[in-house]
């Protein structure tokens, strides 16, 4: 559904800040098309700020932000942001929140309802579709937001601690869902988390953001891809069981 495949992202000597006070200075960072880059770092180091900048919500004070070879000048449906805090429209039910993303993508009215229902089904909220955000728990709201974003089929997904409010089991199934979706519709992902396990599980590459830009960078060993391929190639494994299997195998490593 997303147009033209994954989008590469690049920050070239980028300084970001609020009211002239820099938060991130002279950052250089390149994310290849289709890569999952995990960003770790202490609170307040500018992880959310960086995602907002890539999303086009915050202009760079200096330097250049590039997406798919084009300079980032504003927001676009190609670069969706899954917000850390509550970003659902409170007057729309879960389903209508997802439908909004589809409408903005030009999906025909007649198809929106079924498509939105399907995405809510995929995040495990099939029976919560007609509830308002205030009638959902924090974790359920995060999953609706995930469904809304994935339904839009963006070419780059900027995820700001998207699974932070989920219990371990749901978190594992959302991680699995994300990887499944990316396998069908490739997209570049910048994923912010505090959870090192999650970083190792999802990332192709992990960067640690510090006060002076990228403080450290780690490739994730190739065994991860082999592991995922092995899991994907086992058709008798019940889909719901996969995340736990993976967690176990990871713990065994």
């Amino acid at each position: 559904m997303g147009g033209n495949g994954a989008l590469s992202l690049r920050a070239e000597g980028v300084t970001l800040g609020y009211a002239g006070r820099p938060v991130v200075s002279g950052l250089n960072l390149a994310v290849a098309a289709g890569e999952i880059l995990v960003v770790l770092g202490p609170s307040g180091c500018g992880k959310s700020t960086l995602l907002r900048a890539f999303a086009g919500l915050l202009p760079a004070a200096s330097g250049r932000l590039v997406a798919g070879g084009e300079p980032v000048t504003g927001t676009s449906a190609d670069r969706a942001l899954v917000f850390q805090d509550d970003a659902l429209l409170p007057w729309r039910t879960a389903r209508r929140n997802v439908e909004l993303a589809l409408a903005l993508r030009g999906v025909r009215r007649g198809e929106r309802r079924a498509t939105a229902a399907r995405w809510l089904e995929r995040v495990g909220l099939g029976d919560a579709a007609d509830r308002l955000p205030r009638e959902l728990s924090g974790g359920m709201r995060q999953r609706v937001q995930l469904a809304r974003t994935l339904a839009a089929g963006p070419r780059a997904i900027l995820m700001d601690e998207p699974f932070g409010a989920l219990d371990a089991q749901t978190r594992a199934s959302m991680q699995r869902l994300l990887l499944d979706v990316l396998a069908d519709a490739p997209a570049t992902v910048v994923f912010v988390t505090h959870d090192v396990d999650e970083a190792l599980l999802l990332g192709h590459r992990i960067v640690v953001l510090g006060a002076a830009g990228v403080a450290a960078e780690f490739p994730v060993p190739a065994s991860r891809d082999l592991l995922l391929a092995a899991l994907g190639a086992a058709p008798e494994v019940v889909q719901d069981a996969r995340p736990e299997t993976r967690v176990e195998e990871r713990e065994a490593v």
Binding site: R52, L57, A77, F83, D86, A87, R105, T149, A152
Partner: peptide, 12 residues
């Protein structure tokens, strides 16, 4: 602000 930001990053 987040309501507006969210809808903008969905392409509005």
């Amino acid at each position: 602000v987040v309501w507006e930001d969210a809808v903008r990053t969905l392409g509005a």
